[in-house]
Design a protein around this nucleic acid. Structure first.
Lengths: 127, 127
DNA sequence: CTCTTTCTACTACTTTTGTAGTATTCATTA
DNA sequence: TAATGAATACTACAAAAGTAGTAGAAAGAG
């Protein structure tokens, strides 16, 4: 999978569907998209075309129907978004971000344990 | 300070200047903006007008010059962006986000220590 | 073989954003 | 007081994004 192109908010919602399961027919995608968004079918079609046009997804013809698959990976896309977010709002640094995030969020014990574990695993691997 | 309106990337760069120091004259803002961005003066003026129009900043006339101040707080804006980011990419949950972030980031010892401390402080206050 | 349905292919139109240009208004200087 | 310069007020225009509509083609129903 390749360098991630610019993906808009609405397009991203379609990508999520593709990342969960692919290849999917236009109709499948439309149906799934409409579970969570009140989008006209045509709107979903447009989003799919645009994603294909910008190289974020590809399609394969089966008879007269199209089956779409993602061309960029969820992982690399999330990485890019993570960094863009950190850079824009926290000068690229994690600590201030986490701190801002936690300062206004109620965490369950489980959350805290998870976070502990995540950070500890980093510590060990960094030895 | 009030509910944060939609602020575009370029507009946000102007807001950062205002959050650091205000009120500031149009010229001051333009000058500071140009330290980090190659923006035409008119571009900065447009951004300022739009921020004022959408209620993110306000201005006060002093003679024929305008002095701008932020109308929304950096804190509340960052909170909103934090949550929108978490919701969009991690189903609103912090742990998966941190985990994704750390999985692809080299952390210094200091970073780790900071993170530890941030999380420990949460733990104690949650007791 | 024609009609209807169902896909995809184009086209469209509005809002937001990025990025500036032109017009107008005052205040100051000659 | 007329010319100049410096501010702000409007206007502009293209690209991206949101949201659909219309046209055309092909497949299945009679």
């Amino acid at each position: 999978m390749k360098k991630t192109p610019q993906i808009s908010r609405a397009e991203y919602e379609i990508m999520k569907i593709l990342w969960d399961d692919y290849p999917l027919s236009t109709n499948d995608i439309t149906e799934r998209a409409q579970r969570s968004h009140s989008w006209n079918q045509k709107t979903v079609h447009t989003l799919l075309s645009r994603l294909a046009a910008k190289g974020a997804a590809s399609y394969e013809k089966q008879g007269r129907m199209y089956f779409y698959s993602p061309l960029i990976s969820r992982e690399s896309y999330l990485q890019q978004e993570n960094h863009s977010f950190l850079d824009r709002f926290y000068g690229g640094e994690i600590a201030p971000m986490l701190s801002s995030l936690l300062a206004h969020t109620e965490l369950s014990d489980k959350d805290l344990e998870d976070l502990h574990e995540i950070i500890n695993s980093q510590t060990r691997s960094g030895d």
